[in-house]
């Protein structure tokens, strides 16, 4: 069947860091054909095809928020599959195998998680759902 393309505008320059990515220039329009929940989206841009960070795109009509789930302050239990050391001050440092609560699943692949008293952003690709209830 036909593939529905969604168009997005690039908000800042992005230089690709691996061969299956596409370099972006602020103001470019890109057509997205697949959205991975880890924040990498597949774009078809004229002759170029490859993965681009969702964090550098904005929808043309500004109605992106509608597809993003609301924050869930009660939290959903996930476990870290891989450790990550915070680079930005709003990120969280965790080791592999820690149980945390996910409170907001952002489309850019950086979810807001809570560990005890601390909250911060963490890469969704390093998390898996435990299926347990608190």
């Amino acid at each position: 069947g036909p593939i529905m393309l969604e168009s997005y505008r690039v908000i800042a320059d992005y230089g690709k860091s691996s061969k299956y990515e596409v370099t972006l220039k602020a103001g470019d329009m890109v057509d997205i054909v697949e959205k991975s929940p880890n924040g990498w989206w597949f774009c078809q841009c004229e002759s170029r095809r490859g993965w681009v960070p969702a964090s550098y795109l904005e929808p043309l009509d500004g109605a992106d928020e509608s597809e993003e789930p609301e924050p869930n302050y009660a939290g959903e239990l996930y476990k870290t599959t891989k450790g990550y050391k915070a680079v930005e001050e709003d990120e969280l440092t965790l080791e592999a195998g820690e149980t945390i609560e996910v409170i907001h699943k952002l489309l850019d692949g950086w979810w807001v998680v809570r560990k005890g008293e601390d909250t911060g952003h963490y890469p969704s690709m390093f998390l898996y759902r435990t299926g347990e209830k608190k």
Partner: peptide, 22 residues
């Protein structure tokens, strides 16, 4: 392969586009 998304976390949004924590 190009069918699989990169295995490294994507970059954070540019600072002026970052949202505050929930």
């Amino acid at each position: 392969s190009i069918k699989e998304p990169p295995q490294n976390p994507p970059p954070r949004p540019p600072p002026e586009h970052r949202r505050k924590k929930a």
